[in-house]
Simulated scan of single mutants.
Amino acid sequence: MKHIHRQPLRTRAFTLLEMMIVLLIIALIIGSVAVMVGGIEKQAETVSAGAKIKQLQSALIAYKIANLVPPTQEQGLEALVTRPTAAPVPKRWSQLVKADALVDPWGRKFAYRNPGKHNNGGYDVLSFGQDGVENTDDDIGNW
């Protein structure tokens, strides 16, 4: 009887170079997803700021309907949260928004101007955007 010598089957393993290439591809995929998510997050913050400004505008309209005038510059948007004590003191006041509605997605208070720079004869409600600097391209307002 002849003995057939079989060589043991060698299991093929990944080389270090192949592992490094796979890890590099995974890192590139994760990096590109992170960049895309970051862009979506910025856009979401901008949309959120716009929605909050519309909410504040609705509350300011309700305030004006009840009191015949919008809050003064001195009273500010806080007049929608707490009853103003500065003249003209509203006769028919109720809380129209919660305090967190006065804060933009970047943690800063919305600005209020009465009279407005952009809305002549009206008022401006605005966020200075992510950079927090007025009169830059990322400002969001009711104009």
Rank of each mutant, 00 (worst) to 15 (best):
V89L: 05
M19T: 05
M36W: 12
Q55L: 12
N135Y: 07
R113C: 07
A51R: 11
Q75A: 03
L24Q: 02
N119S: 04
G38H: 13
R92D: 11
V33F: 10
S58I: 03
Q57F: 04
R113Q: 13
K64L: 02
A79W: 02
N119D: 04
Y112S: 06
I53M: 01
Q75S: 03
A49C: 06
V133E: 01
Q130K: 14
G132H: 07
A51K: 13
D100Y: 06
E45M: 14
K54W: 00
I21Q: 14
S32Y: 10
A13P: 00
I65D: 12
V47W: 09
Q57Y: 06
Y112W: 10
A79H: 06
I53P: 12
V35Q: 10
K42H: 13
T82A: 09
Q7N: 02
I65A: 04
V103Q: 11
H3T: 05
L56C: 09
V97P: 03
P90H: 06
K117D: 14
I65H: 11
T46D: 09
A86Y: 00
Q130M: 06
S94H: 13
A66Y: 04
R113S: 09
I53V: 10
A87F: 03
A59F: 03
D104S: 04
L23Q: 07
R113K: 15
L68E: 10
N67D: 08
L80M: 01
K117F: 10
I40W: 14
L23K: 07
V37F: 05
Q130V: 06
A79G: 00
I25C: 13
Q95Y: 12
I4P: 00
M1S: 11
S127H: 06
L80G: 02
N120D: 02
G132I: 13
D139C: 09
I25S: 10
K109Q: 14
T46Q: 11
G122E: 01
V22N: 01
G38W: 14
I65N: 06
L56Y: 05
K2V: 15
V69C: 00
I53W: 06
R108E: 12
L102K: 05
H118C: 00
P88F: 09
Q73C: 02
T82P: 01
A99W: 05
F110K: 14
L17Y: 02
V125G: 01
R113E: 15
A34E: 08
G39R: 08
I30M: 13
K117E: 15
I25N: 05
F14D: 00
L68I: 07
P71L: 08
W93M: 07
Q7R: 00
D124Y: 04
M36R: 10
G31F: 07
